[in-house]
Design a protein around this nucleic acid. Sequence first.
DNA 1: GGTAGACCTGGACGC
DNA 2: GCGTCCAGGTCTACC
Length: 293
Amino acid sequence: MDIVLEAQAPFSLPAVVRSHGWVQLAPFSSSDPYHDFRYVDRLQSGRVVTWDVQPCDGGALLSVGGELSSAEQRETEDKARWVLGLDQDLAPFYDVARQEPRLAKVVENAAGRILRSPTLFEDTVKTILTTNTAWIGTIRMVRSLVDLYGEPSPEDPSRRAFPTPERLAGADVEALRKEARLGYRAPYVHALADRVARGDLDLEALKTADLPTGELRKELLALKGVGAYAAANLLMLLGRTDFIPIDSYALKMVSKEFHGGEPVGPQEVEAAFARWGEWNGMAYWFWEWSGNG
DNA sequence: GGTAGACCTGGACGC
DNA sequence: GCGTCCAGGTCTACC
């Protein structure tokens, strides 16, 4: 069954897929040159389906094997629109990006949307698993969670959906630590899953919460395992772009770009992009650096 | 409020 | 093959 996902122009599916490394994290997959993607989704009904998302005129075309009920079709379309940020209006950002040569390619490539998971729960777990580890470690830890706890696709059991909060809450913390090899992050992921599964924390409500960004940031920082970097990363995924996810890469690039290689701290990173105001996270994310790092 | 050290894994390196 | 060192954010204890 095919679902046409109409996008507000300008839109580029490859630009979303290449917006960051999320497409390399299960249950996303893509083949070089990251032109399209696949995703294994568990519907509310419990049915597991695989999306195949390709570019098409005016947006993207999502195909799933077999037929979907009208409710499943609506659920899939809503999730896919969130994943691709199709309802985001980037015109105000493009207005400022046009004034900056280092952001010229954002406009030229119809970039600016950031690939995200269907649920904030999944993105929060993934973000926690990006901290204090090399990218290859994040890929491995997410892969392990999906392989060990994800619901298999009936068509191809080797493909699995991202585990539900209930499934991870029911997992043993030591198994998360030792078998999924999350290390010290295991209790953070388990506690998050447990709170969501018990209904103590409604993460998904934060997607549409009418909260000032500073308040939203406080909510995220209250989660164990989520510090300044992780909160800023999640805010970017939520479309709140006024904080920069400052990690060691940011420190290195700002040092090279603006300080002649001298060591810098978070204040220098913030100062380098402060003039972009509410868009400073976007300016940082899509900045065309002089070197490749 | 600021800082030091622990947390955990995997890769790089030297022997 | 083994041991050591290092990178990578966050938390906690301490000042």
